[in-house]
Nucleic acid binder design. Sequence first.
DNA 1: CGAATGCTTGACGGTACTCAAAGATTGTGG
DNA 2: CCACAATCTTTGAGTACCGTCAAGCATTCG
Lengths: 230, 230
Amino acid sequence: MEAFLPVTAQQLQAIQSFRTGTRRVEAGGTIVDEHRASPQLFTLYAGWAFRYKTLSDGRRQILGFLLPGDFVGLQDEFADGQTHGVEAVTDATLCAFARERLWALFQTQPRLGYDITWLAAREEKLVDDHLVTAGRRNAGERVAMLLMHLYRRAQRVGMVRDGWVEFPFNQQHIADALGLSLVHTNKTMRRLQRLGLYKLDGGWLRILEPHALETLGDYFERPLRPVPMI
Amino acid sequence: MEAFLPVTAQQLQAIQSFRTGTRRVEAGGTIVDEHRASPQLFTLYAGWAFRYKTLSDGRRQILGFLLPGDFVGLQDEFADGQTHGVEAVTDATLCAFARERLWALFQTQPRLGYDITWLAAREEKLVDDHLVTAGRRNAGERVAMLLMHLYRRAQRVGMVRDGWVEFPFNQQHIADALGLSLVHTNKTMRRLQRLGLYKLDGGWLRILEPHALETLGDYFERPLRPVPMI
DNA sequence: CGAATGCTTGACGGTACTCAAAGATTGTGG
DNA sequence: CCACAATCTTTGAGTACCGTCAAGCATTCG
């Protein structure tokens, strides 16, 4: 797939030896518990998932969404338990790695170590953008930005068919990602739909006016370099 | 300093060969331009700085604050220019590294590569927390959280003297970090001051009721492990 | 068919934003 | 040393965006 960097046979072997198995999680299931440090790192192979944190009174903030190819769990490496949860939105397939072998991987395969750093840096950029959204955009801009963002990322990994993407989120997910209430999220999304900017049907999303949404969200994705795949 | 991991002589030498020089930036000066990819990575040696992004109409979001020991610029590694700015709040001293030598560093010094990944993961955790603040906390909680957060981090690197920390930010900085307006930030801060939770005098901050602020912000920092220093 | 989940809408209230202007503080030049 | 500008802080008044509460509607599932 063109979104990912090519891998040599030797690297592939190193990745294989680093992995400890495949895991399946059904829709709505917990991939990483919010309050327990995970002994594993994951790469998402198939499905949609998200990272989140909850305040003690239950308010939840979704930190980011995960698509196939995304690497999760590095943030916990030094967190001593104070970390974030990961939950599957659809049925998901993951590749698991032993956290304790991470250092060995860096030693024996510096290239893969470098790639992991790359992925970590990219992740942080996503959170940076998300923070701008939550901090400085209004409701309409937030929705526009999120729709374009998810669409573009899905497109990149080949999840768009005839202009439609699987969109398995409910409005509570969107609200928790954007820092809005459920009701206000609903009203904002309805408004943008009535304006004809996008369409949502049976869990599938179609962007009707990409330029309008990009302008509204002040969010223009540039073509991205291929990403390493661990 | 106990906040940092010890370094071997050999590692120190590797770090030295990686660095390309020291840079001084005066208060208010630009460390990294928001719209130009920086050819350098930095470690902040002295002073306060912050990372930020601005929307096209001028709204600014501060992504995080930088204290001595913090490493900046990794996010740009693969960003193709779509990045964030870094600005000095006080006079600042930085150690510069050539970005192009990063890969060589990973090859020859896997330990330092691993440490850089550590720092990147830690950075992302900070942004995650910040995102929860902007997305799900109200004004009082945001201010409480930020004050405790900055105080604890400063304390960790020995910047607290007799309970006072240098606090060189103006209210616009705070507002842009928290995603609030200047006026509302002012009113909220005044309110917490009148409640006797903290004191601010001549650019120095003193936390009077740490427990109350932690509870209000629902933010409890655990003791952190020592951090690598590049 | 009833329960559960999610979407939609209206009404109302409050938090936070904007506008405006008056202090306070600092720095600069005559 | 004072006048004046510039910057930052503080406060008040009015408004709007967004949150909460409540209830109706649609869809799915057992």
